[in-house]
Amino acid sequence: MTRNSRPRPNQHPPIDARVCISFETAAQAKAAAKALIPDNVNMPAGLTVDISSRGRRVWVHVGGHGVKTATIANTLDEILEHISIARKVISADA
């Protein structure tokens, strides 16, 4: 690591978190991902969230550059909680 690549004391290093959640059907995965789209607004500067479905899986990518680790962890926790709720609603409809 070079001297210039180290984070400054008040800077936060880049963080990249990816999670994959499997559903019983592709339609359920698509519905869960679609239900989360409204949550991707008014995020702190430097925070990125990407949620997509491919087949029976929902892929969640949360990243941050210059963002506190706790902010990224809390964002991911909130998304996973919403996916858990979506899963319960979807399975209740089946």
Rank of each mutant, 00 (worst) to 15 (best):
V58Y: 00
I90W: 00
V49F: 03
T69A: 15
T2I: 13
S84I: 02
L47R: 00
S22T: 13
V19Y: 09
P14Y: 14
G64M: 05
R6M: 15
P7Y: 13
A27M: 09
R3M: 12
S52R: 09
A29H: 02
N40H: 07
R87L: 07
P7F: 15
L76G: 01
R18T: 14
T75V: 15
H61V: 14
E81G: 12
D50I: 12
R57P: 01
A94I: 14
N42G: 07
G64W: 03
K88P: 00
W59Q: 07
E78I: 06
G66Q: 00
K34L: 14
S91G: 00
V49R: 03
P9A: 12
A94Y: 13
K68Y: 09
P44G: 04
V67L: 02
E81I: 09
R8I: 02
A70Y: 06
A73N: 08
R87N: 06
R3A: 14
M43W: 12
L80Q: 06
F23A: 05
R57F: 04
I79K: 01
A29S: 08
A29G: 09
D16Y: 13
A29D: 02
A45Y: 08
A86W: 04
A92V: 01
G55E: 04
N40Y: 03
D39A: 13
D16C: 12
A94P: 05
R87V: 07
A73R: 04
C20M: 15
G64A: 02
A45D: 12
I21Q: 09
E24H: 11
G63D: 01
T71Y: 03
V58A: 03
G66A: 06
R57Y: 05
T69Q: 06
A27Q: 07
I83V: 05
R18L: 11
A29V: 04
A27D: 09
A70M: 10
I85V: 13
F23T: 05
I37F: 02
E78H: 03
I15W: 04
E81S: 11
A31I: 01
N4E: 13
H12D: 15
L36Y: 01
L47Y: 02
